[in-house]
């Protein structure tokens, strides 16, 4: 039973890392204002939101079994307060920080109409801290993180997010960047 829980927690963690990466990439794409050929902006926005919420579900799947698992010896306090764990306290603590950040980002995302744009945006920026923390946690805590497939997966996720971040800070990032710099007049056409 404990083995099954342990395995479920690990797989959920891996899936969650992929979902988080997807959420970050979609968030950056959404911020650019650019649609994809098959997906209009509204769909991208909803996809970004739903994948993020799915990431929360998988985070629960990742953490809940550890609470039930007598061997892992994780309690509720460890889930939210970092660096108290008994097993690889540092690497687990990074995961805890990432969880806290994710909770803040998701909660302010859901409440943004009430909180206002400033709070929402300020907290949402924490996503850029959350993602590397989550990745470091999965690499540092992972039972077989040094295996070739795990390393390859981590490298792929890293390259994807770094490339997206580089695009994010580039001059032509916004869909409207060229038009607003006084470039050729653009016919936006019917969306």
């Amino acid at each position: 039973m404990d083995d099954a829980l342990w395995a479920f927690a690990r797989v959920s963690g891996l899936v969650d890392m992929v979902l988080l990466t997807g959420s970050v990439l979609l968030g950056i794409l959404t911020r650019s204002g650019r649609p994809l050929p098959a997906l209009p902006r509204v769909s991208l926005m909803l996809l970004h939101r739903n994948i993020s919420l799915l990431a929360v579900v998988f985070l629960v799947f990742h953490v809940a079994p550890l609470l039930l698992d007598a061997y892992a010896r994780v309690n509720l306090v460890d889930v939210v307060v970092p660096f108290l764990g008994s097993y690889k306290a540092f690497w687990q603590g990074l995961g805890t920080v990432a969880l806290d950040l994710m909770a803040a980002v998701v909660a302010t995302g859901l409440l943004r109409h009430r909180l206002g744009r400033r709070t929402f945006r300020a907290v949402h920026w924490l996503s850029y801290a959350m993602w590397p923390l989550a990745l470091a946690h999965s690499v540092g805590n992972g039972t077989d993180a040094t295996s070739a497939p795990a390393v390859a997966a981590a490298v792929v996720l890293c390259v994807a997010v770094l490339a997206a971040a580089a695009w994010r800070v580039s001059a032509g990032f916004l869909e409207t960047a060229d038009a607003r710099r006084g470039g050729a007049r653009r016919d936006w056409g019917r969306p």
Binding site: R41, R117, T176, A179, R185, R186, W188, R190
Partner: peptide, 23 residues
Amino acid sequence: TMCDGRGLCTELLPEALTRDDWG
């Protein structure tokens, strides 16, 4: 003062809204 012309509203309301030169 808030609008940044991201284009979501123009997608949702294509009959009511278009976009200007700057989006």
